[in-house]
């Protein structure tokens, strides 16, 4: 079974050192900044998302809120044309 965009985002957050809290203990609406995501890591996260989903985030989405939770990220991906149900 192919994994959903949400799962792939979670996997990305799990395998990189950007959070100080294990993503498995966090819900999809948990605040990633409270979990230790820094402004610095946000840019790296954005680049990793662009690579993973082969998309480009437009300027209008380049703000802190876009990356504030798994749900917010998935919502942004959907907005730029990623099929977020299954890939």
């Amino acid at each position: 079974m192919s994994s959903s965009a949400r799962d792939r985002v979670r996997t990305l957050l799990k395998t990189t050192g950007w959070l100080q809290t294990d993503i498995d203990t966090l819900g999809n609406d948990a605040d990633l900044y409270v979990a230790g995501l820094t402004s610095h890591a946000t840019v790296t996260l954005m680049l990793a998302l662009e690579e993973t989903f082969d998309v480009e985030f437009p300027d209008s989405l380049l703000r802190r809120r876009t990356f504030s939770s798994v749900d917010a990220i998935v919502e942004a991906l959907a907005e730029i044309g990623v099929n977020t149900e299954a890939v």
Binding site: Q20, Y33, V34, G36, L37, T38, S39
Partner: peptide, 10 residues
């Protein structure tokens, strides 16, 4: 930090 449990960036 927001609380003694919070990461350095929060």
């Amino acid at each position: 930090r927001r609380t003694p449990q919070s990461p350095a960036s929060d």
